[in-house]
């Protein structure tokens, strides 16, 4: 009680010394029957509550640590997958390099025509003089002049197919000698020592 409220109350009580006798204070005997039961109940609730708490904490930590193992396993898996992605990206990069594409295209018998001819859509006029591509291709004359160390050991697509399927699919076009492959130009290491890429089977 604060002083302020005490001051307000004072006038309500009779002033001057009290004439009443001191109040008689006496212990009330405990009501044994009424109190005994609640004590057991409370104890039970508390102990039970504690038990439930501990049990749930145990379960929670089991679940958590189990989750930790799952997370760990998943993270490891993600790392593996990321590695696989990286490897495939690297393979794709080197296989789609112009050196590799040109070497493969020419191995398949494609040469580039240095005489562009245009068909004008408006009047159907042919601009330029159509002429068959001269020469054996950009690479055939001098081999690949643009090094790419990553292509070391990467075989040309036609090499495995040259004997059987390729000859049927492309009759008469494989007579030309195989051009210098990039690995011959750049190669210092024997191809067998490096992990070989599987030859793509795209047709």
């Amino acid at each position: 009680m604060s002083l302020a409220t005490a001051a307000l109350r004072r006038p309500a009580t009779p002033a001057g010394p009290s004439l009443e006798p001191a109040p008689h204070i006496e212990l009330v005997p405990p009501a044994a029957g009424r109190r005994a039961r609640p004590r057991v109940l409370y104890a039970g609730v508390v102990v039970g509550g504690l038990g439930a708490l501990m049990l749930s904490q145990l379960l929670l930590s089991i679940a958590l640590s189990d989750g930790a193992y799952t997370i760990d396993a998943l993270q490891t898996e993600r790392k593996e997958q990321a590695r696989a992605v990286q490897q495939l990206t690297e393979d794709l990069g080197r296989l789609s390099s112009p050196q590799n594409l040109a070497a493969n295209a020419e191995a398949l018998g494609m040469v580039q025509n240095t005489n562009p001819v245009w068909l004008r859509m408006s009047d159907g006029a042919v601009i330029g003089t159509p002429a068959p591509a001269a020469g054996a291709g950009v690479l055939a004359a001098s081999g690949s002049q643009v090094a790419n160390d990553l292509l070391t050991g990467v075989p040309l697509v036609t090499v495995p197919a040259a004997g059987a399927e390729g000859a049927q699919a492309l009759p008469g076009q494989l007579g030309a000698p195989a051009p210098a492959t990039p690995e011959q130009a750049a190669g210092t290491t024997a191809p067998a020592e490096l992990p070989l890429l599987a030859a793509p089977t795209t047709r």
């Binding site: 390099s97 112009p98 090094a147 790419n148």
Partner: peptide
């Protein structure tokens, strides 16, 4: 670092 296109 890798350079997929080599000397290009």
């Amino acid at each position: 670092r890798v350079y997929p296109n080599g000397a290009v």
